[in-house]
């Protein structure tokens, strides 16, 4: 161990202080860059009166995009956004197929094949005064 004099100490101390300040400055930059001006909008979509969806109907709502199924048991809503990388899946008589990477799902949205690892996400359904609302649980 070589002799560690006052000059060395001051040099190391001031350099490490400078480095630390730099890091603190960087964290400021990080906070600047990660600010998000608006909170995510509430993902609730009004889709009109219950009567527009008679029992036995399967309605594609392109705006969301989602599929609303009216079964004897009640309403089921499925998101048509592919859980793989976000393309909108195609609604076919045999189920669903994603045009981007070829994932396939059965008519109830369960995963059949393809790169997707999850089934199509079900959406929550709320009924207020005979009006239907679909809402997405935040992904």
């Amino acid at each position: 161990m070589t002799h560690f004099n006052r000059r060395d100490f001051l040099k190391i101390a001031s350099n490490s202080l400078l480095g630390l300040s730099g890091l603190i400055g960087l964290s400021g930059l990080f906070r600047f860059l990660s600010y998000e001006p608006a909170p995510p909008p509430p993902l609730e979509y009004p889709i009109g009166p219950i009567d527009s969806y008679p029992p036995g109907s399967r309605t594609v709502l392109t705006e969301i995009p989602a599929l609303l199924i009216h079964d004897p048991e009640g309403f089921i809503a499925l998101s048509l956004t592919c859980p793989h990388l976000g393309c909108t899946v195609e609604n076919l008589p045999t189920g669903f197929e994603c045009p981007c990477h070829g994932s396939r799902f059965d008519p109830s949205g369960q995963l059949l094949a393809g790169p997707a690892a999850k089934a199509l996400q079900p959406l929550q359904i709320k009924i207020k005064d005979g009006q239907l609302f679909l809402s997405q649980t935040t992904p």
């Binding site: 705006e63 990388l85 393309c87 909108t88 981007c100 070829g102 790169p115 690892a117």
Partner: peptide, 28 residues
């Protein structure tokens, strides 16, 4: 537009087509 339109192009730009093909095989 916010609503999905009928005429959709689902192809990646040509220099990323190989990645699009790779993505069909498994973990993204």
């Amino acid at each position: 537009s916010s609503s999905a339109t009928v005429l959709t192009e689902i192809r990646a730009p040509w220099f990323f087509l190989w990645v699009q093909q790779l993505l069909r095989y498994g973990d993204a």
